[in-house]
């Protein structure tokens, strides 16, 4: 069951996790529960894979260089090509999407030559071309993901 405490932890601490020596205790004090309860709830959320981690999101292109990449892959080759792409440590968020351009991933490298090199390797290894779509401008300010946790999400947690 996704308790009220779980929901608060999921919704209220995406942006400004406390930067103090005892952040979990601070959260506990804010929410009127004990530190043990907060630690147990976060552990449960992590173990059941509802959160990937508590950590930083880095502003794109501030450290190194990144680009969104799209590829148009025939259905029969998709699994093989996706696996090759996923193996690169420079790749994250590798998704299949419904479009002629059906494989989408983000590449992060330390500089332009490193990025170009990884792209060249991917094209050579898979035999397919890439389309590079680097970020030109970020318009999004309202950060974090506002969850509307209704009975559906609870049902998922129960079945987990």
């Amino acid at each position: 069951m996704l308790s009220f405490l779980h929901q608060q932890l999921l919704n209220d601490y995406q942006q400004d996790f406390p930067l103090s020596p005892t952040p979990y205790l601070d959260i506990a004090n804010t929410l009127g529960v004990t530190e043990e309860e907060v630690l147990a709830a976060f552990s449960a959320l992590a173990e059941q894979d509802f959160i990937s981690r508590i950590g930083p999101i880095i502003q794109p292109n501030q450290l190194g260089i990144s680009t969104l990449v799209a590829m148009a892959i025939p259905e029969a080759d998709m699994s093989k090509v996706a696996d090759i792409v996923s193996q690169y440590p420079e790749v994250n968020h590798n998704y299949e999407r419904e479009h002629r351009f059906n494989l989408w991933f983000v590449l992060i490298a330390r500089d332009q030559p490193h990025l170009a090199n990884v792209i060249e390797q991917i094209e050579r290894q898979t035999g397919f071309k890439t389309m590079q779509l680097p970020l030109l401008e970020d318009y999004f300010i309202n950060l974090g993901f506002q969850l509307d946790l209704d009975s559906k999400a609870e049902a998922i947690l129960v079945s987990a």
Binding site: Q14, S52, I57, Q62
Partner: peptide, 28 residues
């Protein structure tokens, strides 16, 4: 550690610090 992370966040290099949710698992 706390001071450096606070500074990186203030500078905007860390865009946000917090819980990173798995939206698919949460019903999205």
């Amino acid at each position: 550690v706390i001071e450096r992370l606070s500074k990186l966040k203030q500078q905007g290099l860390i865009k946000r610090l917090g819980v990173i949710v798995k939206h698919r698992r949460l019903g999205y």
